[in-house]
């Protein structure tokens, strides 16, 4: 049972002050799967992603990467984070570094790769996301879509086994959203395992292997895009989908 999943999340709970954000989240992720999390704002989707790579420490529950428990692993977490990439809503590119330096810094500092090798790898990843021509530009000189594509390249340069996308297109206008979604679709097709918090239903329909609808810190419903989008069982899922279709 366990070996077929690259990532297992078991009964994650998280409270901030007295507010319970996650109330027992469990799911499994198969290698190459694309899971899209949808649900109202403040429902704990981003916190859940941050609990997976331990940027936020869950109060209870376990996360396993390839059957190795990463919750409560102390300083070894840096090693696991190298295997779980993350893409942020606000890109979080390093402002003082050019695009290519942003991509090569982690391989150099964390994986101790030689500078030339890391540079070649960085250029390869920038090329993959269509940003090779912008390699020597600084983040402040890039559009939101370009910055997000660089941040995806930065993630890919570490050869992650799973990538967490935390609302990667929420800060972008529709035109820029499209260029980022194209890169993500290519990634999904290439077999990358992806967990995506997003309300891009077109993306979810065409790429997701599973959609998880969350509300109030719980998973309300999960299933294939066809099941969730065409035939949602739970009334809250129906209501939510109805609402976002009209926006």
């Amino acid at each position: 049972m366990t070996g077929e999943y690259i990532l297992r999340v078991e009964d994650i709970h998280k409270k901030f002050n007295d507010r319970e954000i996650l109330r027992g989240i469990s799911f499994n992720v198969k290698k190459g799967a694309t899971i899209v999390f949808i649900g109202p704002s403040g429902t704990g989707k981003s916190t859940l992603l941050r609990c997976i790579n331990q940027l936020t420490e869950p109060d209870r529950g376990k996360v396993f990467l390839d059957d190795e428990e990463i919750t409560g692993c102390g300083s070894r977490i840096s090693g696991y984070r190298q295997r779980i990439g993350m893409v942020f809503q606000n890109f979080n590119l390093f402002d003082h570094l050019t695009a290519v330096e942003n991509v090569e810094i982690a391989p150099i500092k964390v994986r101790k790769m030689k500078k030339e090798e890391a540079h070649a790898k960085a250029m390869e990843e920038l090329h993959r996301v269509g940003m090779a021509d912008w390699a020597h530009h600084y983040p402040a000189e890039l559009s939101g879509g370009q910055a997000q594509r660089v941040s995806i390249a930065r993630c890919l340069a570490m050869d992650p086994e799973v990538i967490l996308f935390d609302e990667p297109t929420s800060a972008l206008d529709p035109e820029l959203t499209r260029e980022v979604l194209e890169v993500m679709k290519d990634l999904a097709r290439s077999g990358m395992t992806m967990l995506v918090v997003s309300h891009e239903m077109g993306f979810a329909r065409s790429v997701a292997t599973e959609i998880i609808f969350m509300e109030g810190g719980r998973i309300v419903e999960q299933g294939s895009p066809l099941e969730i989008m065409n035939n949602p069982k739970h009334p809250r899922t129906r209501e939510f989908l109805g609402r976002i279709e009209h926006t």
Binding site: L55, S78, M86, N92, F94, V110, S151
Partner: peptide, 10 residues
Amino acid sequence: QMTAAQALGM
């Protein structure tokens, strides 16, 4: 900036 660096394994 710190979050992104830590997420990369730093």
